[in-house]
Amino acid sequence: MKKLHVGTGSEVEFFARGKRIARAADRGESIPETHIITFEDPADVAQLLTQARIGVFRSVKAEPASITAIATRLHRDRSAVKRDVDALCEAGLVAVESVPNAGHGMHKIVRAVAARVDLRVSID
């Protein structure tokens, strides 16, 4: 995935976007791959995208790594980084993959799900 949109919106906007996509598909137009995360309350966006979590996202976007490596890179406690990774993973901003460890077992790598995140917030 190349792009992820995070913002606020309503049910009406959600269904309107779905109708636009369906019409484009009916016309045989290609549908670009876009992932959208929408929050009804702007406070939920602010709670998710803290300064620390944005730092974690930027770190894994630049170079996917284990939670321990991210914590070391950011000079933060591993357990705090783990909580931030879990929150970003639940929101769909990062993914955690198990990969073979050279010589033995598996280890987990955190990757950004998009090269770019667009954030749009409307407060009415």
Rank of each mutant, 00 (worst) to 15 (best):
K3Y: 11
L4S: 07
L4E: 01
L4A: 10
L4T: 09
L4C: 08
H5F: 09
G7V: 02
T8S: 05
G9D: 00
E11C: 07
E11N: 10
E11I: 12
V12Q: 09
V12S: 11
E13K: 05
E13H: 07
E13R: 08
F14V: 10
F15G: 02
A16Y: 08
R17P: 02
G18S: 12
G18A: 15
K19H: 14
A22F: 11
A22W: 06
R23W: 11
A24Q: 14
A24D: 15
A25V: 06
G28V: 11
E29M: 13
E29V: 02
S30P: 11
S30N: 14
S30T: 15
S30R: 13
S30H: 13
I31R: 06
P32R: 10
P32L: 07
E33Y: 12
I36T: 15
I36R: 12
I37A: 13
T38F: 08
F39C: 02
F39G: 00
F39P: 02
E40N: 14
E40A: 15
P42Y: 02
P42S: 05
P42L: 05
V45T: 00
V45A: 04
V45D: 01
V45G: 02
A46E: 14
L48F: 06
L49K: 01
Q51K: 12
A52P: 06
I54N: 04
G55P: 03
V56S: 04
V56I: 15
V56K: 00
F57A: 03
S59T: 10
V60D: 01
K61G: 13
E63H: 12
A65L: 03
A65D: 10
A65P: 00
S66C: 05
I67E: 04
T68G: 13
T68V: 14
T68Q: 13
I70P: 03
A71C: 05
T72N: 13
L74N: 03
L74S: 05
H75A: 11
H75M: 11
R76T: 01
R78T: 04
R78K: 12
R78C: 00
S79V: 02
K82N: 07
R83D: 07
V85L: 01
D86A: 07
A87K: 06
E90K: 14
E90D: 11
E90Y: 06
G92P: 06
V94W: 01
A95C: 12
A95P: 03
V96D: 10
V96Q: 09
S98T: 14
V99A: 10
V99W: 07
P100N: 12
N101A: 14
A102W: 10
A102R: 12
A102D: 10
H104R: 15
G105S: 03
G105F: 00
M106P: 03
K108R: 15
K108I: 04
K108A: 13
I109W: 03
V110R: 01
R111S: 11
A112E: 07
A112H: 03
A112G: 07
R116C: 09
D118V: 08
L119K: 06
R120F: 09
R120T: 12
R120W: 00
V121S: 04
S122I: 07
I123V: 10
I123C: 05
